[in-house]
Design a protein around this nucleic acid. Structure first.
Lengths: 225, 225
DNA sequence: CAAGCCGGTAACTAAACAGTTACTTGATGG
DNA sequence: CCATCAAGTAACTGTTTAGTTACCGGCTTG
């Protein structure tokens, strides 16, 4: 114990633990693999992603990938779960009930659009997972409750708006969220074919801003009395 | 010359060209490969699709596939082109300008939704192509003009509605089409993850009908004065 | 009827792939 | 300072894959 303390001390003096030069760092390796896998799966889908490519992007090798994550499918599921946790966590910080119902819904629409815009890999992962009919997501045990908070809060805001007479009585929380998500998802995830067939570069800032305003307009127009 | 004519006559008597029993039928083989490829690419994406699987589904073998279509990528592009031709051809038969502007837009929304619902393979192909940033569609020379008709007709209907004072002045044809397509595409293509995370089976007829009405409602609410 | 062409088959090949095994390096505890 | 164990490397393996080659057989044409 004493010896070991002395040893540790001596080593800390030679090589401070904060600025380590060693390549050995389990947490960093694990995180690097997860990030590399997110990009590889997002760019190439489940079928097109290459385990070797993930290892290379992470600056490590396949052995470590299998060591930390089991196999390709488990790694993919982990990536997908983390992506969902990311957006739902950011959503919770919104507190859409703090302002007027109209502003709250507008805020949710803006947030969703901007999150999609800044996280294209999330959209790609959703696309891949749906191509496979949610084969892996269905196996996830972590994600059942993650999403109920969103619908619950949205439901409250809609009720408040109905009481105040600004929203129509038939406004449904799931429909409202699906409307917001639809308008953002389709525009961004299909931007490449759309830009090609309609001859307009949809990713240009001017077009992006116009679509952002459009999403808010459509969402509110569909529920306002 | 005379001999050949006599020979042909004799053979035609034995085996009429209309009801051939032979397995040899270039057109049928070609069409079978194209249909099998459509299903395989739609179900598995470009990376996940297997050339052997396409040949087997078509009731032929790889040799014929390479004979008629060159290679996997050219076959995929052909499948994608045919899918676009399919929806744009069906759209042309609509004549959305024949009724009132409001009915015309509602009709286009209904048509698009129902076409998406009946052609899930079209949605999958779009998803796959966008994952690859329209890599193959961009190479297509056939598809540049195919889509202008849609925007042109939609533009006329919107103008008419503006003159009649039923539509807002800011209504934009591309935005209106993207709105309709967004609401149909997202709901259907993401139905598997959505059903999983929200615990509702979105493909149930009751939910489908509700969403159909919702699409028409949202589209019109967003452009009505 | 004979020659050759075209639709079609099946077995093959080289490369790419997911996953494994045998091994090395370095930190820690006694 | 040595034993141990975890982090990390690289070469290997069996299988799958896109694409090819060698061959078959029947229809058409001269």
């Amino acid at each position: 114990m004493n010896d070991s303390g002395g040893n540790a001390e001596r080593k800390r003096l030679r090589r401070p633990s904060q600025e380590r030069t060693s390549q050995r760092d389990p947490e960093r390796t694990r995180a690097a693999i997860l990030e590399a896998a997110t990009r590889e799966f997002a760019e190439n889908g489940m079928g097109g992603a290459r385990v070797d490519a993930i290892a290379e992007r992470a600056g490590t090798n396949k052995r470590m990938l299998y060591h930390y994550f089991g196999d390709k499918e488990q790694l993919y599921l982990k990536v997908l779960e983390e992506a969902y946790v990311g957006i739902r966590t950011a959503e919770r910080a919104l507190h859409i009930g703090d302002r007027s119902p109209e502003e709250g819904i507008g805020e949710l629409a803006l947030f969703t659009w901007r999150y999609f815009l800044q996280h294209p890999e999330f959209l790609s992962l959703l696309g891949t997972e749906n191509l496979h009919r949610a084969r892996w997501l269905r196996q996830s045990v972590r994600l059942k409750e993650l999403h109920s908070h969103l619908i619950g809060e949205l439901s409250q805001v809609l009720e408040q708006g109905k009481k105040q007479g600004v929203f129509i009585e038939t406004a449904d929380p799931l429909h409202v969220y699906l409307t917001i998500a639809s308008l953002g998802y389709f525009y961004l995830s299909n931007q490449y074919t759309l830009s090609t067939i309609f001859g307009r570069d949809l990713i240009e800032p001017a077009h992006l801003n116009a679509w952002e305003r459009h999403i808010v307009h459509v969402t509110l127009a569909s529920i306002k009395r």
